[in-house]
């Protein structure tokens, strides 16, 4: 299996606070990887570093064998190939649902309007939001916004999709609709890296679960091993608390 991104010895600090303390890890094509861990463990920072929304201080992020942290690397092109779904949806508030899904294709990928529209419609249909193409984000519910955000990311036809706690800002009754879309995507073979607190998703849908604590990767294994047979004491404790809570 070949890697989409491979990370070597990644460090990131905010001021004196070291958030990532040497991360080594990779995501392979077709894999669904879940990043779990308590708040402040550095999972979201790792995801944002991978997409270059934060700039790692040290280490390498290899994409097709090239280090994206190298001077002069075309960051915008790289980002276009990795989709991102945010906790707070971050739909473009000034644009309709359809325009949210076409603007990137037209401006970044230089597709023509009609082609962009067709691709956008395909993915909006996939997430069940094709009826709302004329709506503005402020008129949608949280779950609907997140589904549009997923369609927007898919419309760029990325090599992998990164999810940063996609259901954490949702009302409980809306978590299901987003989770269902994500499960369908996983089943379709999309490469996904998901930061999540949804343990059921990690256990049932992912191929691999990565447990992070205090800026390091503690355990990286198939879900069955992590959930039934965690090797590390910290993993055991976290899972115990997580399962009690959810």
């Amino acid at each position: 299996m070949s890697e989409v991104v491979k990370i070597k010895n990644l460090h990131k600090s905010f001021g004196k606070n070291e958030i990532l303390k040497g991360i080594d890890f990779s995501v392979n094509y077709g894999e669904v990887v879940c990043l779990i861990g308590s708040s402040g463990s550095g999972k979201s920072t790792l995801l944002r570093c991978i997409n270059m929304l934060e700039h790692a201080d040290k280490g390498e992020i290899l994409f097709h064998g090239e280090n994206v942290l190298e001077k002069g690397y075309d960051v915008t092109k790289y980002r276009a190939k990795l989709g991102m779904v945010f906790q707070q949806f971050n739909l473009f508030d000034n644009k309709t649902v359809l325009d949210n899904c076409t603007v990137g294709q037209i401006k970044v990928l230089k597709k023509n309007k009609e082609e962009a529209r067709q691709i956008a419609m395909k993915y909006l249909e996939k997430v069940g939001m094709d009826a709302y193409i004329n709506a503005k984000p402020r008129q949608l519910s949280g779950g609907q916004k997140q589904r549009v955000a997923i369609a927007r990311a898919l419309s760029m036809e990325p090599e992998a999709l990164l999810f940063d706690e996609p259901t954490s800002a949702l009302d409980p009754e809306m978590v299901g609709e987003v989770m269902k879309v994500m499960k369908d995507l996983a089943d379709s073979g999309l490469t996904m890296l998901v930061v999540t607190h949804e343990m059921s998703f990690a256990r049932d849908v992912s191929n691999r679960v990565v447990f992070m604590d205090k800026g390091v990767i503690v355990e990286d294994d198939i879900p069955a091993n992590i959930f039934n047979n965690p090797k590390n004491e910290r993993t055991r404790e976290f899972l115990k608390r997580a399962i009690e809570k959810y």
């Binding site: 980002r79 945010f86 949806f89 971050n90 473009f92 000034n94 990137g104 401006k107």
Partner: peptide, 26 residues
């Protein structure tokens, strides 16, 4: 909102594209 910049950057927009398509209209 900072998230509007993040989202625009995440789909590969340049600073200029982010400004003219997303940020300045708002």
């Amino acid at each position: 909102d900072e998230g509007q910049f993040d989202a625009a950057h995440a789909i590969g927009m340049t600073h200029w594209q982010t400004m003219t398509n997303v940020i300045l209209p708002q």
